[in-house]
Design a protein around this nucleic acid. Structure first.
Length: 421
DNA sequence: CTATAACTCTCAA
DNA sequence: CTAACGTTGAGAGTTATAG
């Protein structure tokens, strides 16, 4: 019955601090791809009022004033740290759902005879000691409540010391606590729903919990109804131990600089196809359609805007990078218009199906380069993405994203380890 | 008219 | 010096379209 939600504190910042302890106690932000927006903030930065998603260029003055350290995101490092953290946490329950890079649910059925708070404190200290990452733990009867409990743990509400176990609270204590939390903190209640709920006088979590599920369903949706039930300790969401295969795989990025010509766009699109196709094969799927899109910078309203995508059905589902690249570039040539400053390009693999029982086309003549793909994937797994790649991905790469403030890939690249002299 | 496809909106980390 | 604003995935609900 009880569920724990373990979440890394300011995860990306914490990862950086493990390898650069000088950042401890100082204001630090980690920026999104292309060094665009803040996607992780240390407590010191949050205290300065910097919101999630603030563009880096808008906080430069503040950064200078307070000596904020900004870092490009280093996903190789974060993914590796995440794996370590998840592996430690997996020791605490046979029932683990890895929900995102920095959080997981643990089902605690069968732990009724344990003191769950002690169990949770043990997780915290072991992750801290073995991985170096500080985490908080929320415990409650449902996923939605455990997310909320985690929020309480992070904010040190209800006397929490990194762990908040809502099941220990009496009904009145619980009501009183939930009445102090804004409804927008609830998992699944975003800005839009918060406003609509507020219009109906529902401002606090407690108010939403007390709402009539049927009315909520009528006025909102099944999703919100489920949320209400979950807030009432009625589980509607189960722990998914095994991640199901993705239904679509997307690869898109902002370009490092504005791009005007078709040639660099082709390189970028070919590169994105290679990334997505690698993930596709890793989950044993083939794609039935591929979508390609390009667009100018929507934030520059005074510049001529253009945004176009094209979905290309494939005669036969494929996992072949070269075949998928040809299809994507065919589409790109059709949507490309000269005279625009392109800022972003992307591709989506869709209509995914199992590679093992692939539906072959009667008329399709192309042959899958299965063996070639296997070799490419293995080489790139050993020596890094892009070691073996198609010529279509280009050499000069004038379009690659900016990552000017990146820390070394301490855990995955020997040559990037600082050498003590 | 129904079933499905395509598209839009919302949310999350 | 200036200009500079993320990525990926899911699900529900709505609208368009085919038969």
């Amino acid at each position: 019955m009880p569920i724990a939600l373990i979440d890394g504190n300011n995860f990306y910042v914490s990862c950086e601090r493990v390898f650069n302890p000088k950042l401890e106690g100082r204001p630090v932000v980690v920026l999104s791809n292309n060094d665009g927006c803040a996607v992780a903030r240390s407590n010191e930065v949050k205290a300065l009022g910097v919101k999630m998603g603030t563009p880096w260029f808008q906080m430069q003055d503040l950064a200078r004033q307070h000596g904020i350290t900004a870092l490009s995101s280093n996903y190789a490092l974060y993914a590796d740290m995440s794996n370590r953290m998840m592996s430690v946490l997996s020791q605490y329950s046979p029932d683990q759902e890895i929900y995102s890079i920095d959080e997981c649910f643990l089902g605690l059925d069968g732990f009724e005879n344990y003191d769950l708070v002690i169990h949770a404190q043990a997780m915290r200290s072991q992750v801290r000691r073995w991985v170096g990452i500080p985490v908080c733990v929320g415990i409650a009867e449902t996923k939605t409540l455990s997310k909320l409990a985690n929020h309480c743990a992070k904010k040190s509400l209800a006397g929490a010391d990194g762990v908040c176990d809502l099941t220990r609270l009496s009904e009145t204590e619980r009501s009183r606590l939930l009445a102090t939390i804004e409804v927008g903190e609830v998992w699944g209640i975003g800005p839009r729903l918060s406003k609509q709920l507020a219009d109906r006088g529902i401002h606090s979590v407690e108010a939403l919990r007390r709402a009539d599920p049927k009315t909520i369903r009528r006025e909102f949706s099944v999703v919100v109804e489920r949320t209400v039930l979950e807030l009432n300790a009625i589980p509607c969401l189960s722990i998914e131990n095994v991640a199901s295969a993705k239904q679509q795989i997307m690869s898109s990025r902002s370009l490092g600089n504005y791009v005007y010509d078709l040639a660099p766009l082709k390189e970028a699109v070919a590169t994105y196809v290679a990334i997505a196709a690698e993930k596709l094969r890793a989950q044993g799927s083939v794609a039935g359609m591929i979508q390609v899109y390009i667009r100018t910078n929507p934030h520059k309203e005074d510049c001529p805007q253009y945004s176009k995508g094209l979905t290309i059905p494939l005669p036969e589902p494929s996992g072949d990078t070269l075949y998928l690249t040809r299809a994507a570039l065919w589409g790109l040539r059709r949507i490309y218009r000269p005279g625009f400053a392109y800022q972003k390009a992307g591709i989506v693999l869709m209509n995914l199906s199992d590679a093992t029982n692939k539906q072959a086309s009667l008329f399709c003549t192309h042959r899958e380069n299965d063996r070639l793909m296997e070799v490419i994937d293995r080489a790139n797994a050993i020596w890094g993405r892009g070691t073996l790649r198609s010529a279509a991905t280009g050499v000069s790469k004038s379009w690659v994203m900016k990552r000017e403030k990146m820390s070394p890939q301490y855990t995955t690249h020997w040559e990037q380890l600082p050498v003590a002299i």
